[in-house]
Amino acid sequence: MAKMVELDQMEKHFRISKGMFDTSRQVVRAVDRVSFSIEEGEVVGLVGESGSGKTTLARVLLSLTKMTGGKAMIDGVDLSKATKKDLKKLHQEIAVVFQDPASNLNPRQTVESSIMRPMVIHGVPRSEARRKAKEVLDMVKMDQRYLDSYPHQLSGGQLQRIAIARALALSPKIMILDEPTSALDVSVQAQILNLLLDLQEKMHLTYLVITHDLNVIRYISDKIAVMYLGKLVEFGPTEEVTEHPKHPYTKGLMDAAPILDPRLRGRAKELMKGDPGSLINLGTGCRFYSRCKYATAECEKEDPKILNVGFGHQVSCVHPLQ
């Protein structure tokens, strides 16, 4: 299988300054030397708490923001060396669906013109775009009569279907789904998750799903990437990561996730204390150090190396769990 996305020590740092005479040079390491890859036709789930850098990582892949270091290859194109022409081609191949569909559909445009918009921008003739709009609407299992509707006439689930239809308009190879079901109710969430999986299987799409809902991630993804304060702490096949987490943070996250069965209420679990804290001017050493109960002096001193623990399972920890 070909690698669709390949990140090698990818970095995105933001400089913050408090005015022109500020020489303190504070840096936010939003994404810090992250390496992992996504194979063609694979669903990778990216989890982490707010501020862990998961959305920043997605923004880099969508070239909405420029990375500051490392390398990112998308379908064979090096993002840092890409020409305008390369980028235009990439923008057709990579599509995105955001959390709140109501806020990213133009309230004054009909569903049809919203879906046609990306095609028109990419020079698809109008008649062709109109035909394709009907086709993608069909793919998300919505009736043709909604073509003339405006966003305010539709429910949350319907809006999310429109957003997915629009993402499909340019026949992408990769879809980035940023919290695709977080704003939806349980029954609608199930509809959207089923739809996304059907589309993925039928069209052999590659998904990067970003969410903080571990139950959703466990259901939908083949592999899971766990981020903590800008670092990738664990990466591997879904069952491996959820059932045999190696990083104390992943373990804590799995324990904290609410289970959907009251009989498991008394299960053994350890709750993490505190919260992730600030990303500003982090020194060396493991970033989970202050919350980790296994932490030793070694953890504070140096950055943990990436260990391979088998089955394609990687962990970045000095004392991985057994």
Binding site: S155, G157, V186, S187, Q189, A190, Q191, L193, N194, L197, N215, V216, R218, Y219, I220, T238, E239, L260, D261
Partner: peptide, 23 residues
């Protein structure tokens, strides 16, 4: 009943989730 089956309690290998048609 339907709601309980719509909860993502499994992995995709175990099949699709139950949905409730309509609104």
């Amino acid at each position: 009943k339907l709601l309980m089956q719509a909860l993502p309690r499994k992995t995709k290998k175990e099949g699709r989730l139950q949905t409730i048609d309509g609104s």
